[in-house]
Simulated scan of single mutants.
Amino acid sequence: MAEDTQSTITYGIFNEAGGHESRVALTPDIVKRLKRSAIDCVIERNAGHAAGFSDDDYIKAGAKVVTKDEVIAQSQAFGFVERPDDDLVARLPKGSWVIGMLGSFTDQEYVDCLDKAGLVGVGIEKLPRQLSSAQSMDEMTSQNSVMGYKAVLKAADAYGSFFPMMTTAAGTIRPAKVLILGAGIAGLQAIGTARRLGAVVTAYDVRPAAKGEVESLGAKFLELGLDFSKGQGEGGYARQLTAEEQAAQQAAVDKKAAEFDVVITTAKVPGRKPPMLLTQAGVDGLHRGAVIVDCAASDLGGNVAGSKPNQTIVTDNGVQLIGAPDLASGVATTASNLLARNVADVLAHFVNDGRLVMDLTEELDNALIVAGRVEAPEPVTEEEEK
């Protein structure tokens, strides 16, 4: 990359910290990386504080630290942890690019809002993960990995005993039995973390390939006696099961779950209602003191009946049900480093000769651009030129 190329694109980042969010969509290391690609960065004051990055860190890396109004005025592209709200969308300059998880699978009204504002919306949730060129842009994978790790720590903190087996003067304490439902990126990370803490780990996923992945990490695969051989959906995400498959799966999982001390569910489907993996009957079947962590809890529902996002509920039978959709934010420094790289690589993909350019005949562009789509003109034939 040319170090001396004059920057013609400015990338703007806002302070999104607050509530359950501590991450930032740009880190000082990524400022340096983008600088080498002739992209300047401006960031709102204190945007990185909650993630462990000071304004001075950004300035030393080559970014400008400015007010929110100045970020809006100076930038042609904006990166986000969470999508911008309607008020901010209305303030962004027409023709600018909005990059992040935009929820385009389920919220066409929001996509229409971006279109009406004259913005180009790049929805990372639409990333075709199977493309090798898309790997470094895969925000879902990077954040789910952090989430799986943190979910186990959350469960261990809530559980009233040890995860590992311990021999004490008062006798031997058996290890915790942990069930991971969903063996994607988050689930596999959860398996590894729970095993490192000494738990006896079992996992389940509808994808046939998951059994080998689970067992390769030293966990047992939960055998339900069912066959969902078409368990993987488009782009490598878990697919929604049919009603019949879901009913059979739920009945079997509910019955098996009663054997475990901790249940962690990780089956998120980006922008869509997550599949139900543990019904009320399954929750009721767990013993007093058991812990459930539902990483997919959301306003659309969760993997576990009765879970609520960012709430801990103690059921009548003494089970702790923790709705934890924002676990990645609890590891804000690492999560931000990963996310910032993902979003920056999406931005860099669309930069050509110092301009932001889309080519909807290219698979990656066609998938990612959800608003402000500009079709390439038809090629002119020799006869038309004459």
Rank of each mutant, 00 (worst) to 15 (best):
T10S: 05
T10F: 11
I13Y: 07
N15V: 12
S22L: 13
R23A: 09
A25I: 07
T27P: 02
P28G: 02
P28H: 01
P28D: 01
A38H: 08
I39H: 05
E44V: 04
H49N: 13
A51M: 10
A51V: 08
F53P: 02
S54W: 12
D55F: 10
D57M: 12
Y58W: 11
A61F: 02
A63Q: 14
V66E: 11
I72R: 14
Q76F: 11
F78D: 00
F78I: 12
E82T: 10
D86E: 10
D87M: 08
D87Y: 13
V98Q: 01
I99C: 03
I99Y: 02
G100C: 01
F105V: 11
T106Y: 12
D107S: 08
E109R: 15
V111S: 00
D112P: 01
I124T: 01
K126M: 13
R129C: 01
Q135G: 02
M137D: 00
D138Q: 04
V146Q: 15
G148E: 07
V152G: 01
V152N: 00
L153K: 12
G160C: 10
G171V: 14
T172M: 15
V178A: 06
L181I: 14
A183S: 15
I185T: 14
L188W: 02
Q189W: 11
A190T: 08
R196D: 00
R196T: 00
T202E: 06
D205M: 11
R207P: 00
R207A: 03
A209F: 14
A210F: 05
K211D: 09
G212A: 10
E215A: 10
L217T: 03
L217F: 05
G218E: 03
K220Y: 10
F221Q: 03
F221I: 05
F221E: 00
L222A: 00
D227H: 09
S229Q: 03
K230M: 13
K230H: 15
L241K: 12
E259G: 07
K268C: 15
K273S: 05
L277E: 03
A281I: 14
A281W: 06
G282E: 07
H287W: 06
A290W: 10
A297L: 04
L300N: 10
G302W: 04
G306Q: 04
S307A: 07
D316R: 12
D316M: 04
I322W: 09
A324W: 01
A324F: 02
S329G: 15
A344C: 10
D345T: 13
F350T: 10
L356P: 06
V357Y: 07
A371C: 10
G372D: 08
V374Q: 08
P379F: 08
